[in-house]
């Protein structure tokens, strides 16, 4: 067992905090006890399955192609997740797949092309996982913001179209505002790292016994990659979704933001 491993006993001990969450829900009559337990069981099962799969994938005898196939499956699942979380977004699956495919390609090409990490399963799978996983909320947020901006400013957009502006010009100020909002939370996260937030990769490395400065270097690289990914995602979503919301003869489709 590695230096930072906690074993089954450690995991069982950490369940105390799940009990705390259940007790809080019960005492405050939140009605979330079942949901909390189900979420924890589901997370455990998913993580264990992934853990065993990763053990096979990153084995030295496993071909690299299997890791790339795993990345493809992650992309598909993340696109399905985006579609489920943002049902009001037309063509969300294809849009998310294109956006996350583009950002994963860009980030992995950067990581391996610049030699930050070697092209090995041990690097491909976790890095792609972090990029894609962190891109899901950014993709959903960007798509929802684009819909909200164009819906809230429907009258202004139509006034611009009525002046003879093409859809790309008529939508630009509103899509720009949407993407700024969608990117701001990631930028704020990047700024807060280290002060109020010790991110997962760094914490995991430190718990596993890595020198904190080395862990920081890894985390910084990951943060920058995530930022690049979220920016790529947001712009692909912005362009792709806006194009879908207008007809070829420059009319704005009826867009409805989701009630919150």
């Amino acid at each position: 067992m590695g230096e930072g491993a906690i074993g089954w006993d450690g995991l069982a001990a950490s369940l105390v905090l799940v009990v705390v969450a259940v007790v809080v829900s019960f005492r405050r009559s939140l009605g979330l006890e079942g949901t909390i337990l189900w979420a924890c069981v589901r997370a455990m099962v998913q993580l264990l399955l992934v853990g065993y799969a990763l053990a096979v994938l990153i084995d030295d005898d496993t071909p690299v192609a299997a890791s790339w196939a795993w990345v493809g499956v992650m992309l598909l699942f993340s696109a399905v997740t985006v579609q489920r979380r943002a049902p009001e977004v037309p063509g969300a699956f294809a849009l998310a797949l294109a956006a996350m495919g583009a950002s994963a390609t860009l980030s992995l090409a950067t990581v391996f092309g610049l030699g930050i990490y070697p092209v090995a399963p041990r690097a491909i799978v976790p890095i792609a996982g972090m990029m894609i996983g962190n891109s899901i909320s950014g993709t959903v947020s960007a798509a929802r913001r684009v819909i909200a901006e164009l819906s809230d400013n429907h009258a202004e957009v139509e006034a611009r179209l009525a002046l003879g502006q093409p859809w790309s010009d008529a939508s630009r100020p509103y899509v720009r505002a949407a993407l700024r909002t969608a990117l701001t939370s990631q930028i704020e996260n990047t700024k807060a790292v280290g002060l109020v937030l010790l991110p997962g990769a760094m914490t995991g490395l430190i718990l596993a016994g890595t020198d904190p400065v080395d862990a920081v270097l890894v985390q910084a690289a990951v943060m920058f990659l995530i930022l690049g990914c979220v920016a790529t995602n947001a712009s692909v979503v912005g362009i792709g979704l806006t194009r879908r919301l207008f007809t070829s003869d420059h009319r704005l489709a009826r867009v409805t933001r989701r009630a919150v």
Binding site: A155, L161, A162
Partner: peptide, 20 residues
């Protein structure tokens, strides 16, 4: 051509729509 047509046929809407 829709864009050229819209410039020939100007439109004022029910509520004022000032741009920023």
């Amino acid at each position: 051509e829709p864009l050229a047509h819209r410039r020939r046929v100007g439109m004022v809407f029910q509520r004022p729509t000032p741009f920023p």
